[in-house]
Structure formats: structure tokens, C-alpha cells
Design a protein around this nucleic acid. Sequence first.
DNA 1: CGCCAAAGTGACAGCTTTGTTACAAGCCGA
DNA 2: TCGGCTTGTAACAAAGCTGTCACTTTGGCG
Lengths: 229, 229
Amino acid sequence: MAANILLVEDEPGIQELLKLNLGQAGHQVTAAEDAEGALRYLKTTLPDVILLDWMLPGMSGIDLCRRLRADKRYQPVPIIMLTARGEEQDRVTGLDTGADDYITKPFSPRELVARIRAVLRRRAPQMTEEPVEMAGLRLDPTSHRVSANGKPIDLGPTEFRLLHFFMTHPERVYSRSQLLDQVWGDDVFVEERTVDVHIRRLRLALEASAHDGMVQTVRGAGYRFSVQR
Amino acid sequence: MAANILLVEDEPGIQELLKLNLGQAGHQVTAAEDAEGALRYLKTTLPDVILLDWMLPGMSGIDLCRRLRADKRYQPVPIIMLTARGEEQDRVTGLDTGADDYITKPFSPRELVARIRAVLRRRAPQMTEEPVEMAGLRLDPTSHRVSANGKPIDLGPTEFRLLHFFMTHPERVYSRSQLLDQVWGDDVFVEERTVDVHIRRLRLALEASAHDGMVQTVRGAGYRFSVQR
DNA sequence: CGCCAAAGTGACAGCTTTGTTACAAGCCGA
DNA sequence: TCGGCTTGTAACAAAGCTGTCACTTTGGCG
């Protein structure tokens, strides 16, 4: 889960510290001292995450955040705001302007790393709210409906999420533990074998409408959702 | 996902309980009663995970944790702290000193096992494998598929790994023991002749799609994967 | 040609992984 | 609170993989 990170922080000490810590966590860090520097960098490179200090000389972090969010090009880049203690009320403003997370100084490097991982994960699987359709199978996240060639299919919540994940990540094997992370959430502690059972339930539901064979077992590796074969 | 675990816990009852539970989960557990014992063990062996009790006689768990984190050699080993209820505020300290996770007693064995799995997974390098293709033979690690000129080939896990290794290291002879190291893992104890058998199985699978002759025997040396006949 | 070591082959028992079913606990709306 | 779903787990069955062995074939060499 290594990532390119743009750090916008004017205080040299903190900047160094963060670069060190994030570097150790396997991330690539580029630092900018102010909003202008950040924008200059962004013209050429799109980082995976932006760490944005609230207090900056010149254009403030919040303004930069707002500006980035207004720009289509930077829409998908997660932004984490760094705020000092006592600026708590800023949190609302911060999240309001489009930051994905915020963290209050002083914070432990661990926590920051964890939050970075969290926003990356949140963004990573592009499980959009868009309807997905393939091979006559249609899943609409908004209305929470699944249908095969027009005929509705009944799915429980878990099977629904499972199918949604599969349809947005087809043709690729996922291990049970990956599926637990992605579909159940990585803070849920259930047996890996539970996945098997839900796979079966999903298969049963799909079979009923002649969509069998799409959920495939890859022995020793996991499961794959596929239109082929 | 079996792992070598170093358990640092002074209370015999809990120690026994954990050894039992983790053992059942397929892990290898070594226990130390105090920081000194742990350090002694670490001099010779590097575990996959360290479970560290907060309260220890002599050097406290937190000090040991800090000390380990300061030592380059132990940097990559995940540490999970075991804390008693009511030491909640220690959490921050714990994570601050470099623990990867913490768990509050009393906890269910299941939860502990899950957290161990989580830290292991988090550390595991996310190797994004590129598809390999040569002479009409295509192997895609992500979808875990092999095909010859479009036609799918069925391979068991071992044959898949074997072919993957061969395709990423073509035109070169590997001895049986090298192949065991690379494909089976260097901690596996199997007869060298086992390689022969899997070579044969791989050949059979490839023959079926007219890709015979690619796995070549080099008498007295080993095997080679080659496009040339 | 005859011998010996190396490699090929087929069978198989044991083991691991996965499928399937049943069941109890939890949740939620009626 | 009562039923009907959903969920997680356990237990057992089925299927597939693996490692090893015994036996055969091949290749090299005197």
C-alpha cells in the first residue's frame, strides 16, 4: 500500500518528521511549503493522497482544499487536513470543503499512517454508486436492486455487497481474507470460511436466473467473478 | 497463514491459554516471561509477530516495544500490545511507541487471531503481478488464469506457480533443489523427485494444447523452460 | 552391447481445500 | 413480543491436490 504523498506544510521541523515517518511506512513523500508550491507540483503530478496543513503562509490550507475540490482533475485525490489542537471547530469547515479526513496535532505517526491507509482503501475499490451491468446482470446500488434480464433477484445485504464488489472488480482472484477486508470491512472478525457460505448463497441466487458459473473457485487462491467460461 | 509468534507474557495462566489457542489456529508460539527472555530469543530468531503484554516484571512491555522499534533489525516485525481494561489511555502511548495494534483484555482468542492475521496482511508486500506471455502461452497472476492461444488451461496451484516461475525465468536451467526453493519455498521438506512429478503434470497440461517441448530436461542439471526446441 | 544413473510414468493413500447443510443467535419490523 | 429474515459457525461430505513409491524407459559410456 505504498503511495505518493504530497505534503503541504510550512514548518520545517514537522515537515522533516513526517517525511521520515511516512518514508519508513513505505510512502513516497513530496513536500511543498505553501499552496503555490503545491499547485505547481500538481500541474505535473497527481499524488495518491494530499496532506494539507491548515495554517499556511499565503493561501490557507482550507482555501487550497476548496480550490482543489473545485477542479475536476483533482477530484479523486483524497485530502487529509492537519489541524492544530484548539482548531476543533475547523473540522466541520474542513470536511465541509471536501477534505476526506482530518487529524489533530499532535498526532502519532502511526495514526497518520493508519488514516492514510484508510482513505486510500476507501477510495481504492472504485465501488461507485453507478449501476453496474454485465452479461444481462444488472446491479443498481442506488435502488439496491439486482436483476437478471429484467427479472429481479433477491439478495441479502451481504450477498449484495459481495456481488457489487465482484461486479466492480471482475476477472480477478480475491482471497478470502481480501474479500473479508473489502466486503465485510477489515475491522470485522469473522471466520474465513464464512466467505464460502456467502459465496454459495450468492451462487444459489444467481443460478436461479441462469447466471451460474460466474462466481468461480480458484483452488488455493480464492474466488473470481467472471463472464467468461 | 501460519506464523511464528513470540509471546511475551508473565502470567502463566494467560500464557498457556494463548499458546493453546494460537497453536490451534496453526501458529507456532514461543513464550517469554519477561523482556530479557524476549530479547534473548530475538537474538537468534526473528518471529513474524510479537505479542507483548503491557505489564511485565522488570522492563515493561512499552519499554521493550520502544527498544525493539529503535533497533533496525526488528523494524519490520509487527507488534501487538496486550493491555488490561482500564489502561485505555495507554493505547495512545502504545501506538506511539510503535506498536502496530493493541488489544484489550479480556479478549476472545478469535479476535486475537483475526488481529494477527490483519497485521500480517498489512505487512505483506502487495505484489502486483504482471501477466506474462510468450509463444502464444499466457499467464495472468491477477486473474490466476493460463491460456494457450486463447484456450484456457487448467492448472493446480503448484503447477501454476511452477509455470509462473518458469515463464518469468525462461531459457535457464534450474536444479530440482533450486526449483523447490523458488516454487515450493525454502522451508518445505519434500523429496527432490517430487519436482519430476510436477514437471510431468505441467507437461501434460501443456501438451494438451500443443505447447509441448517447452519444458526441457537437462540431464544431470535440472529443467529449463524455453520457447526454442 | 551391457551397465548404471537419471528421468519418466502411473498409481495411490493421505491430506487440504471447498461445497453443502443444519442450526442457533441476532436483528428488525409488524 | 413474536415471527421471519439474515448471519456466522460447526460439522460432515465431496472433490481436488500432493508427495512418494515402484517400476519402466532413456541416455551416456566403457
